[in-house]
Design a protein around this nucleic acid. Structure first.
Lengths: 350, 350
DNA sequence: TGGGCGCAATGAATCGTTTCATTTATGGTA
DNA sequence: TACCATAAATGAAACGATTCATTGCGCCCA
């Protein structure tokens, strides 16, 4: 019910020509002009040409707002993501842009900054603008947002972060499986003490990974130690936390970073502190940043199928927009572990 | 005049409550309901409460489309950029998002992929959707697009790439100045043969840089050689071109990359070919990619003031939206040369 | 007591389309 | 020639809000 209102803006001084102007100039009724301009069949060739000519001369352009009001749809799909700083979400937004534009839809993108309250507010503005559908990458506590969306009835696909909410279609990644493979890779290299660094431990995605991480480590035996470093504020605080985590003789011999931003922070911190990878410590990251192959040695990482996510989500959304009303669908995609030089057998002394 | 129409979408089956429903439930006229919900003063406390209560109960949300039609403004600003793959534009989009959302505007972003025809088409869809204003990073040949925008009368700020078009406000960078400083930096280190690598030589921005580059090199004396490597198709073709450019005894001793993507391609190509920087060759880039400090040694680059661009452009756009009609304004911002380890004195033998 | 003044509330017009029930024109057939 | 079917064109009613001229009402003061 929050009243969302755009700020003060002067209406344009010169008025664009309307369909009425076109009709007048062509000497036909508005209805006929509309029929011509919408390629409806029931209109004669002579009038058709006159109308098209008039529209061309006047430089008429359809008023999408009026059309949307009458047709009760806007051709706009909302996209709410936490941020675009991460390579992962940036790629996702671009993938959506692509597929949407190619089919005549427009994307209206908003950023939630991983803040539930902001997320709700942004989604409210999208709903007020009468979006036809919504793609949501939910924050950690999306309950209110999800309720609002469900109440609004706007077709929605929840992406990337699985919720236990059964009201929505979802497209997610097999986080547990990916983490199991990551952990087993490190274990097989001989690592016995592994540190998992995460930004937001409360995300469902993160929790699934942590559970999988700890379970896999437990299965490997009692001599194995898993640790989680959570919620760093900024690169500096993170560097500090990381250094304390790496202090002492029984320090971790491998680090898993939960996304490309943390990977960047990690490598920066290690470099500053004089650690070398993979000699002193192995490093592995979720997401595949653009620079994965640029650092030396290149970064082992979990490549998430961004394009496939966008494609599936879009397809599912289109089906709902077309009126499909079957049961909820839940697509789960597999990520790929890309082995590069930043993970290796731990040093002998460790 | 191109008719732009959204694709087939079923209108929603459950109709959202309208202001009429709210008015009926509160037992008042539509006008009164509207006055309450818009915080107009001329309404009594008793009715106000009844209306607000009714709106709350029904979960009423204003229909932005209807409002936009009546008020003849949408609160949406269009943003047309070449792509978001480059760190520079990604940051720019995010900066706009931020400042726009904080003031109740929404951003509708489209990608031109640096293609004039696509750019025109995308801008047409924005105009048809009745955007209040537009921020455009023009492609290399934007004449038709600019004509269309000028004819539409939509307030527009042209950003990043200066055109000789006097019809628009602009916010640009001092490309010539930045390039002069870059070139002088390399000259002062002792480099005498420098290669400038660009993606799109036809961009005005690029041309200004090339002119400045060549002029500065000429001033440095006849023994100095400047070369430009242009229009690489993809990373592989680029690697090939680069290797040929670096072949022979009198090869360049320094490379300037025109943006972060080319910088990435350059470092990848050099690594694959076994060149080391800055030992074998110095490398310097326009844009500051996230990984600038991660590569070893870190990358010297030209930091462009993205936030400042967004802020200035937005401020200028807001002024025009508010009805300001003074002469065109042209803001030129300075970039900053950030010295890091990837540029050094050329090797003795070179 | 009546006239004027102000505040509250109303109702209708409007924004620019699409859509649909009618009307008008056209041609063919009985 | 009368009739009907079909096609072409029209006019008006939506869509859901805002806005503004008008009305109704209570109060104060002369």
């Amino acid at each position: 019910m929050t009243a969302i209102r755009p700020p003060a803006v002067q209406p344009p001084t010169v008025r664009a020509p309307t369909i009425r102007d076109v009709a007048d100039r062509a000497g036909v009724s508005i209805g006929t002009a509309s029929n011509v301009l919408n390629r409806k069949p029931q209109v004669g060739a002579a009038l058709r040409d006159k109308v098209l000519e008039a529209a061309r001369e006047l430089g008429w352009r359809p008023n999408g707002v009026a059309r949307s009001l009458r047709q009760r749809r806007t051709g706009v799909v909302g996209l709410c993501v936490p941020l675009t700083g991460s390579a992962y979400f940036a790629a996702m937004v671009e993938a959506f842009e692509e597929v949407a534009a190619s089919q005549g839809h427009a994307i209206m993108q908003v950023l939630s900054h991983s803040d539930p309250a902001l997320e709700l507010a942004r989604v409210e503005t999208l709903l007020a603008r009468q979006i036809d559908g919504l793609v949501l990458v939910p924050s950690a506590m999306p309950a209110q947002t999800l309720d609002t969306i469900a109440r609004s009835g706007v077709p929605t696909v929840v992406v990337d972060r699985l919720t236990d909410d059964q009201r929505f279609d979802t497209v997610t990644l097999d986080d547990a499986g990916a983490m199991r493979r990551v952990t087993e890779h490190l274990l097989s290299l001989g690592h016995r003490r592994i540190l998992y660094c995460v930004r937001y431990p409360e995300l469902v995605t993160t929790q699934a990974r942590i559970r999988s991480f700890e379970a896999t480590m437990r299965e490997a035996g009692p001599a194995v130690q898993s640790r989680v470093l959570a919620r760093p504020e900024d690169p500096l605080a993170y560097a500090h936390d990381l250094c304390s985590a790496l202090a002492g003789p029984a320090h971790p011999t491998a680090i898993i970073a939960s996304n490309s931003i943390l990977a960047q922070w990690t490598l920066q911190a290690l470099t500053r502190a004089g650690w070398h990878w993979p000699g002193d410590i192995s490093v592995l990251a979720f997401d595949e940043p653009a620079w994965a192959e640029l650092v030396t040695p290149p970064l082992t990482c979990v490549r998430q199928p961004v394009q496939a996510i966008a494609r599936h989500a879009w397809q599912q959304l289109l089906a709902r927009l077309a009126g499909e009303s079957g049961p909820r669908r839940h697509v789960v995609l597999e990520a790929e572990l890309v082995l590069r030089g930043s993970t290796a057998v731990p040093a002998a002394g460790s």
